[in-house]
Simulated assay, not measured.
Amino acid sequence: MTAPPEVTGSGAVAEPEAALKGMGKKAIQGRSLGQIAWLRLRRDKVAIAGAVVIVLLILAAVAALLLDRVFNVVHPNEFHQDLIDTEFGTLAPKGTFGGMSADHPLGVEPVNGRDILARIFAGSWISLLIASLATLLSVVIGTTLGVVAGYFGGWVDTLISRAMDVFLAFPLLVFAMALVGVMPDTAFGLSSETVRIGMLTFIIGFFNWPYIGRIVRGQTLSLREREFVDAARSLGARGPHILFRELLPNLVAPILVYATLLIPTNILFESALSFLGVGINAPTATWGGMLSDASRYYTMPHFMLWPGLAIFVTVLAFNLFGDGLRDALDPRAR
């Protein structure tokens, strides 16, 4: 029989063994910043819904590329003249709601009868590919120059900051229209589609880097005065080591958040160029090109509804996920 705890004053002092008894043998484990961010993100149902839509869009884009270009199962440019009513010269789809049927759930285009669902499906990989590659290019250039400008300061910061101002004041849409409009259809032995994708990726990505560059520069100005940077300097660390081993890991969170918000902006920009006729050449299916074709048929709203809805859902999903990711990675959030 164990002795009772010693009583001192008005309270009892428990023995250490008694205090630890019943706690179990499993040690208490801490949570990393990534685990904390994931728990916060998982509680945000709206952000998770946006992430699910993004994953489905990526899978659909990969499947569309394989089924259209590799296995030749989807035929987005196939004409169905038998589905077009030519009796009164309107060249409208037969039936109701733009010719919707079991074979063509979203209907067909007027005049040529191409399946709208197949064209939206086939055009998904164009928009996502250009937007993703352009965002990657902007992130690489903007992060590199932003970190260098914020850390070194002086004339380096002045030179890079003035370059940012020049790029931000550049009429990007007009320049893109002029450059893509005079670009040859083929170059270096590449097809017209490949050349257009490469050119649009370069224009959108190269001229959008100042936006993320300014964010990274501002964060670097704050981080370079922190204690861990002073400690690295005191241990003899040089500039490249501090930039890539000390500062850059602490900039991952804002870079990821801004990248998720930059992708939908690039999707809208690519769609705008295709709408204006300086994007991907026909007959390659793109969402902006479909909207451009639909603008001539105001009496057939279904033709404009579906590609516009595809752009809307894609942009909304990325924005919702980006907002949730920003809240999850914010150390001051609760």
Rank of each mutant, 00 (worst) to 15 (best):
E78M: 04
A131D: 12
V53P: 11
P76S: 11
T90I: 08
T86S: 14
L133Q: 01
Q81M: 12
P93A: 08
T144V: 02
F97V: 13
L65V: 07
A134Y: 01
P76R: 12
S132Q: 06
L145A: 11
G113R: 03
I126Y: 02
A118W: 02
P105N: 01
L57F: 10
R119G: 05
S138Q: 09
F97M: 13
L133C: 06
G107Y: 06
F121T: 09
G89N: 04
I58F: 11
G123Y: 10
L137K: 09
T90A: 13
G123S: 14
V53S: 03
A64H: 02
S138D: 07
V53Y: 13
F88A: 04
H75M: 08
V53Q: 12
L67C: 01
V70Y: 08
I84D: 11
S138Y: 08
A63R: 00
H75P: 12
V140S: 10
L66W: 05
N112A: 10
A134N: 04
L128K: 01
V73A: 15
H80P: 02
G98E: 07
P105T: 07
D103I: 13
L133A: 09
R119V: 03
F79A: 09
A92S: 14
A63W: 04
Q81T: 01
F88T: 07
F88L: 06
V55A: 15
V53H: 07
I126L: 11
G99T: 00
T143M: 04
L129P: 09
D85V: 03
V139T: 11
R69A: 07
E78H: 01
P110C: 09
L66T: 00
P93C: 06
V74D: 04
T90N: 14
L56F: 12
I84S: 03
G123M: 12
V73Q: 14
A102F: 15
Q81D: 13
E109A: 14
P76G: 11
A131G: 02
L133N: 06
I84L: 12
F121P: 00
P110K: 09
I116A: 07
V62T: 04
I54P: 04
A63K: 00
L66V: 12
Q81V: 05
I120D: 05
L57R: 04
G113N: 05
E87G: 14
L65Q: 09
A134G: 03
D82W: 14
D85Q: 00
I54G: 03
T86Q: 10
F71A: 07
T86V: 11
H80C: 08
N72I: 10
A122I: 04
V53F: 13
E109S: 10
R119E: 04
A134P: 00
T135V: 14
I54Y: 10
F97S: 11
R114M: 06
I126C: 10
L67N: 02
D103C: 13
L57A: 02
D103H: 15
W125P: 01
